[in-house]
Design a protein around this nucleic acid. Structure first.
Length: 209
DNA sequence: GGAGCGATGTCCT
DNA sequence: GGACATCGCTCCG
């Protein structure tokens, strides 16, 4: 029996805004292995980032920012380190983090987490029976938003660099051994661009893990 | 285990 | 009106 209840929190700190002030592919790679922390009323839900995709600004036909600034995508054009949450296929939400300096569009889509803390609550939020296969909780962009109760109304524009935020990204100084790079998934335009980054061999990536 | 498909709301043309 | 950075279910092997 360990005296340390939550060893992954030995040295945990929220990532500063400067972490996100770079090109989306740079930030995407760097986000692998970091922790998404979602504070509920009574408990914390935590997952480790194992799969991400970079979406570039005005030059990327697959990016929401390609068409220029609109009401929906405004967060992508704002300062770095803010959550961009959008509603897709009439049913699901997807979580991104804005990057690049203020005024320049760019973002990173969080596609899969390895669940770390709060698995029972995640299963309830996903409306799954108790003790499901953990891969069903947070492997996939729609799934992880459901498991962490992330919605556009509550979380679009939230500052993920604030320690006081109910949705933030932290580091416990873990860094993945090997990173795999592939084309992005589920898009029509620029489908050949190598902008998807996964922790090699991780069982919680959304496909082919 | 993989291909096919329907569900379903919002945004921009 | 059409597209959509998805998912879970069926059917088929």
């Amino acid at each position: 029996m360990s005296r340390i209840a939550r060893p992954y929190r030995n040295v945990v700190s929220v990532l500063p805004r400067s972490f996100y002030e770079h090109a989306p592919d740079i930030v995407a790679r760097a986000l692998l292995g970091k922790l998404v922390v979602r504070e509920l009323e009574r408990e914390s839900l935590v997952g480790r980032i194992v799969e991400v995709e970079a979406y570039f600004g005005r030059e990327d036909p697959a990016a929401h920012s390609y068409v220029g600034r609109t009401a929906r995508n405004a967060v992508l054009f704002g300062p770095p380190g803010f959550a961009y949450v959008y509603f897709i296929y009439g049913m699901y939400y997807c979580l991104n983090v804005s990057c690049e300096p203020d005024g320049q569009a760019g973002g990173v889509l969080i596609r899969a987490l390895e669940p770390v803390e709060g698995l029972a609550a995640m299963a309830r939020l996903r409306k799954l029976p108790p003790n499901p296969k953990p891969q069903l909780l947070t492997s996939g962009p729609g799934r992880l938003c459901q498991a962490l109760d992330i919605t556009r109304a509550a979380h679009n524009g939230v500052d993920v660099t604030s320690a006081a935020s109910c949705l933030r990204i932290e580091s416990d100084n873990y860094s993945p051994d090997e990173i795999e790079v592939t084309p992005r998934i589920g898009i029509r335009h620029a489908a050949d661009l190598l902008a998807r980054f996964v922790i090699a061999g991780n069982k919680f990536v959304s496909r082919g893990g």
